[in-house]
Design a protein around this nucleic acid. Structure first.
Lengths: 211, 211
DNA sequence: TTACTTTTCAAACAAGTGTTTAAATCAGGT
DNA sequence: ACCTGATTTAAACACTTGTTTGAAAAGTAA
């Protein structure tokens, strides 16, 4: 077996298991068994379990964040041309559309998004740090741009609403109806596009609410 | 030492550690060391680590949910009297006020709320199941009542917005500025009352947005 | 084939986990 | 004082964890 195959297998199954079971709760023995490779392969190819997590997150998050970054940039340049602040709707869409498109791409992508959505509140420092290191620049860029769309808001109010926004987004990212997820009392029977539309409307209304 | 003291100590420190480190990542040896009791005390008094978690959650969640339940009931009886559907604002307030009041009561309460807020998306089935079993009845009641306030929404849209709502609320519950939490790029410098006001406005606007 | 590197493999390692056990200690009632 | 049941204790148990090791196998280039 080529070395790249083993690496890919490990990344794929790690992504799935980390999402489903959590990082700490995923055993390297279970992972390597499912992937059909030897236990020592993880340490040989990645050095450690933590490095494997890093590789799993980086592999998908880098291209995804690049897309989001570019989409936001488009909105910003158009805004500069028209000498107007960017609209909340455009910015939200620039952030959400690549996310949802990515999420719909495959079942594996859904697993990954689940993993990411949970990282915000993950008690495990390992997961949180790994995620935030890769995501921070984008979020700060997004936050700065969104600020321009909502100049009338006091800074603390803006920060608070940013927190609410992230909560809603990560809730959607964590939900995967029809997947391995446990039952919830909420059953969102909606295709992904409609769901994004609804999330957009919800967030826009919340962000633009009178202070 | 009276037996009740040991039990209390275990509950207190378990609450703190489960919130800070997560359930699985909390070692019973560390827990019993911090609490100053013997390792075997957990199994003697609670039977198992899982039962301890259950006791931790139940101790605080039962009275909290009772308060929320009663507050919602007040809103509903007033609505019935006036032959009007309950307002979104009143219902949200009935749910949020007891939560925030509880959260402000003490630092331990904040830990607990953090633990609860995370339970939604906890990869650990143990934590999730334990939480949902105790919280489900209240959430279903709340959901049913809120549905009456938003009769014009299609059912799928309502369900989706419910998901967004829970996301925002749990994001706030998980945040504990000034506590042991790691740094975030969001810094919400707001007292709890203002924060609740803002959350209320945000959610109300989002829920009542045109479909 | 030979020589060399990369990759795989089974086994062992050291440390940590929740739980159990049986003896020791403490408490309250008679 | 004594007895009895509740509680605490140190030690051990059985098991899992991520990681390391050194030899075997596979792959590559001369």
């Amino acid at each position: 077996m080529a070395s790249t195959d083993t690496k890919q297998l490990l990344l794929d199954y790690a992504e799935k298991l980390f999402a489903q079971e959590g990082f700490h709760h995923t055993s390297m023995r279970v992972l390597t068994n499912q992937a059909g490779v030897n236990l020592a392969a993880v340490n040989y190819h990645f050095g450690s379990k933590e490095n494997l997590l890093h590789a799993v997150i980086e592999r998908r998050l880098k291209p995804l964040n690049k897309k989001r970054f570019q989409a936001i940039e488009v909105v910003m340049t158009q805004a500069q041309k028209s000498l107007q602040p960017p609209s909340v709707q455009d910015l939200l869409l620039a952030f959400l559309r690549p996310t949802f498109e990515f999420r719909c791409a495959s079942e594996e992508a859904k697993d990954f998004i689940h993993l990411i959505g949970r990282s915000w509140n993950d008690p495990d420092q390992t997961v949180y740090n790994c995620f935030i290191k890769l995501a921070m620049p984008l979020f700060e860029f997004f936050s700065t741009c969104l600020r321009l769309s909502l100049p009338h808001l006091d800074e603390p109010v803006f920060q608070a609403r940013l927190q609410f926004l992230i909560g809603s987004i990560s809730a959607v990212m964590c939900s995967n109806e029809g997947g391995y997820a446990r039952k919830s009392f909420i059953s969102v029977t909606m295709n992904e596009e409609e769901k994004m539309d609804q999330l957009l409307k919800f967030l826009q209304a919340g962000l633009e609410a009178p202070q």
